[in-house]
Simulated scan of single mutants.
Amino acid sequence: MLQKLLVGLAAAILILVGFIASRPAEFTVKRVATLPGPSDVVFAQVNDFHQWNAWSPWAALDPDMKTTYSGPQSGVGAGYAWTGNEQVGEGRMTIEESRVPEHVRVKLEFIKPWAATNLTDFHFKPVDGGTEVTWAMSGTNDFMGKAFCLVMDMDAMVGKDFEKGLASLKGVVEAEVKKRAEAEAARVAAAKAAEEKAAAEAAVAAPVIAQPTP
């Protein structure tokens, strides 16, 4: 009886292993949102890692997370590394492609709690009402990754974070657009005031033309 149970258990394990191994290795998680701002404003928030803490869905998970920056301020070669609690783990990001203001590709390397390397792409397209942002992550699962996906829906799990991030990015973009509008209004007002002052000074300095005596 015990032998039959062991044989049955072994067979079940082999079937499960075979099923897991047959699962697709490649995966893609993608979310799309329209943000109320021009492409250059939205692009700037993604192309510079120094801006990410304002909208990243993971930044708030560990207020004590340690971060370091490397390379240029933004664009190709810019790097960002983090070490935090069990929720955020440890890893690094590097911008591999940057095409203003259309596309940013980031190499995403997880170190802890498990090692993995994925590619993250942001595409920006002008549309009515602002900029359509497509945030996608793609990669390849090893055997353990395939097994994990049997019990956890990666698209739902990561996609939920993407949705939170895009919602936060919307708020950042709205604030930046408002800031730029206020700065432009102030510039126009200052220019107008300068013109009026110059005209007034010119009028005061103009010579008085004597009127002919009748």
Rank of each mutant, 00 (worst) to 15 (best):
T68H: 03
L169F: 11
Q3V: 15
G89R: 07
I13T: 12
M137E: 12
G159K: 08
V173Y: 05
A203I: 04
L16P: 00
H123V: 05
I95N: 06
L169Y: 09
F43M: 09
D155A: 10
G129P: 03
V17I: 14
F122M: 06
D153L: 10
L6K: 13
K125E: 12
A11W: 04
Q45N: 13
H123I: 01
R31S: 09
M1V: 12
P63F: 11
S22F: 14
I20V: 15
A202F: 12
K112S: 11
A78T: 00
V106D: 04
T117P: 00
L169A: 08
V100M: 13
E182G: 02
L6N: 07
L169P: 03
A210K: 11
K125Q: 11
A78Q: 01
E163I: 13
A175S: 11
D161W: 08
F27G: 09
R23P: 02
A21T: 08
G91L: 03
K160D: 14
G145H: 07
G71S: 02
D142Y: 06
R187N: 07
P126W: 04
V29H: 10
V88T: 11
T117Q: 08
L16N: 01
S70E: 07
K66I: 11
Q87Y: 02
K107C: 04
L14C: 11
A186E: 13
Y80K: 00
A191D: 10
A167C: 07
A200Y: 09
E96K: 15
A210E: 10
F143C: 00
P126L: 06
V204H: 11
N47W: 05
P24V: 12
T134K: 05
D121V: 03
G75E: 04
V32F: 08
W114D: 02
K192N: 12
E182Y: 06
L14H: 01
R180Q: 14
R99E: 13
K112Q: 14
G145W: 05
F162S: 03
S74L: 07
L61Q: 12
S70Y: 06
P101W: 10
G8I: 14
M65C: 05
V29Q: 12
W135E: 01
E174Y: 05
R92S: 14
T67M: 13
D161R: 14
V46D: 07
R99Q: 13
G91K: 04
S168M: 15
L61V: 02
V76S: 03
D62W: 07
K170M: 07
E163G: 12
